[in-house]
């Protein structure tokens, strides 16, 4: 069964005013359970609006959202339960920290779920460990930490609810390369352990190519494509035509193709690139 499914999902901002804008237009997509999905698209393509539908923060103007086969908006009193199932980490999540200590902040979500103190404690420690926060951080004020640490506390706050689906809106924006690799690495590790479904909104094609098995491309409020990472990068030329950058490796092969070399352009990892170049050299060497 699909973890998330949308049926003709549309969303219009400020309907009936001069500021009316269709942000999501007739999106039909089925996201499989246990997938690690990259969500890409231009600024303003509707990515952020789309993902806010997945845990009921926005109600669709038209269409339906199904979580595990159940309509999200069928019964409003159940909405909160769905929010615990689908964890959403916003852009710059460190700005939502508010508690006196890191521990209490991470515990906010699970406490809201009404779990026992023991269970909350277990989940907080587990989530903190998953993002590499150490014991000594737990009793500090979240405002004393560095930017990267704050970000990890905020992510832990969502992980602690053990959501079946984890959605992250540009979790690495504004971090240095090391902080970025660290967070993405931890997320992948967590995914491999828990087999949860992960949606990663990102502007960086390199990250998507490296971490995601499936890719969802939004373009001008519409779903452009949803498929395996390979399928998506097979259409690299279309994607770069939309103004999105493709990974550097892919760009090299697009350039080679343009120069008349007989190469595949659906290459997005170093290993593939090496193999392809070697076979090209072998051919040319003839």
């Amino acid at each position: 069964m699909a973890a998330i499914q949308t049926e003709h999902l549309s969303y219009v901002y400020s309907p009936g005013t001069p500021f009316e804008k269709t942000a999501v237009d007739d999106v039909n997509v089925e996201i499989e359970e246990g997938a690690f999905v990259g969500v890409i698209g231009h600024t303003g393509s509707g990515k952020s609006t789309l993902i806010q539908h997945f845990n009921g923060l926005l109600a669709p103007t038209k269409g339906r959202v199904l979580i595990g086969g159940e309509d999200l908006w069928a019964d409003k009193s159940k909405l909160r339960q769905f929010r615990f199932q689908v964890g959403l980490v916003f852009q710059y999540p460190e700005y939502q920290l508010f508690e006196e200590t890191v521990y209490k902040d991470i515990a906010f979500g699970p406490t809201n779920m009404g779990l026992s103190a023991d269970e909350v404690n277990r989940r907080v420690l587990e989530a903190a460990a998953a993002v590499g926060l150490r014991e000594k951080h737990m009793e500090k004020s979240p405002f004393e930490l560095s930017g990267g640490q704050k970000r990890r506390v905020a992510i832990a706050g969502v992980l602690a609810m053990r959501p079946k689906v984890l959605i992250l809106d540009e979790p690495t924006a504004g971090l240095d390369p090391r902080g970025r690799d660290r967070i993405l690495g931890q997320l992948r590790e967590y995914h491999e352990q828990m087999h949860n479904t992960v949606l990663l909104v990102s502007h960086s094609m390199e990250d998507v190519a490296r971490y995601c098995g499936r890719v969802l491309v939004m373009n001008r409020s519409r779903l452009f494509l949803y498929g395996d990472t390979r399928e998506v990068f097979e259409r690299a030329d279309e994607i770069s035509g939309m103004g999105l950058s493709v990974p550097q490796v892919t760009r090299i092969f697009l350039g080679l193709k343009e120069k008349g070399y007989d190469v595949r352009t659906s290459i997005y990892t170093m290993d593939e690139a090496k193999a392809e170049l070697l076979s090209l050299l072998a051919k040319e060497g003839k």
Binding site: N55, L57, R83, F90, Q96, N112, M113, V158
Partner: peptide, 8 residues
């Protein structure tokens, strides 16, 4: 929205 997502 962020706090609602954490069940507030």
């Amino acid at each position: 929205a962020a706090q609602k997502a954490r069940g507030a």
